[in-house]
């Protein structure tokens, strides 16, 4: 098995004035390629911090983190940016689309920073849009789309660079449960197509889609178990 993510004794301490908060207290974690993992935990458990570090948005205070072959500690800010655009696809709770820009341009954004020429960008973005079932919404701006559609655009943006890892932070948090299920079904399809998926949530029924559930408490891994076989309805 190829380990995509390897963490050893990873800690993160936030210093605010004289108070220091230990968000992660020593995480040892290995996630293989093509896994579907849910990270759960109450608020304050460190799951967002872990997510940020996995996504190379934040640096650990101590310990090691390998993403593929790269030791994150050694990398420059530029290299980290490149890894974010090349290897990781982010899906956020609040979608985080650029409001003034069309669906297609939003999706093409990561490709711009990877230096793809405009024609290629447009083609790849259109393909990604087709994959999330919104091929007919190319020129729509985010505010002309429903929440579910916006999240699909965001997923298409995460997909467009063919990343090793799709990182979803409460992807259904701003959606009603029916739309949320549709989004989860879409993520399931992506996993079935071979993407590694990590999803952060505090909803057990969302986590239940994953094959493996990691529970955090007080900055430590409390449990790391295969998900129970579940019989929640699926869109496909």
């Amino acid at each position: 098995m190829d380990a995509l993510i390897q963490m050893q004794a990873l800690t993160k301490i936030y210093q605010t004035g004289t108070v220091s908060v230990r968000a992660l207290a020593g995480i040892d974690l290995e996630i293989q390629k093509n896994e579907y993992v849910a990270i759960m935990g109450p608020s304050g458990s460190g799951k967002s911090t872990l997510m940020n570090i996995i996504g190379c948005l934040d640096m650990p205070s101590a310990g090691r983190y390998f993403l593929g072959q790269d030791d994150i500690r050694d990398l420059s800010d530029n290299r980290l940016s490149e890894i974010r655009s090349r290897k990781i696809g982010f899906v956020f709770q609040s979608f985080n689309l650029l409001p003034r820009v069309s669906a297609l341009q939003n999706i093409a954004l990561p490709l711009i920073y990877l230096g793809f020429p405009p024609k290629t960008r447009e083609r790849l973005a259109a393909e990604a849009l087709d994959r999330v079932g919104l091929g007919d919404r190319k020129q729509h701006k985010p505010n002309e789309l429903s929440g579910g559609q916006r999240q699909r655009i965001a997923i298409a943006r995460a997909l467009v660079t063919q990343p090793d890892l799709i990182l979803a932070d409460e992807p259904t948090g701003n959606l009603d449960s029916k739309t949320g299920e549709e989004i989860m079904a879409l993520i399931q399809v992506l996993h079935d197509q071979g993407h590694t998926v990590i999803i952060v949530t505090h909803e057990p029924y969302i986590a239940a889609h994953a094959a493996r559930i990691i529970r955090l408490r007080d900055g430590l891994i409390e449990s790391d178990l295969p998900a129970k076989p579940q019989n929640l309805p699926r869109a496909r």
Partner: peptide, 16 residues
């Protein structure tokens, strides 16, 4: 600020 965050998260470098 949010836009800057989004751009940075999906791969924009500082000089971009």
């Amino acid at each position: 600020i949010r836009e800057i965050g989004i751009r940075r998260a999906i791969g924009a470098r500082k000089f971009h």
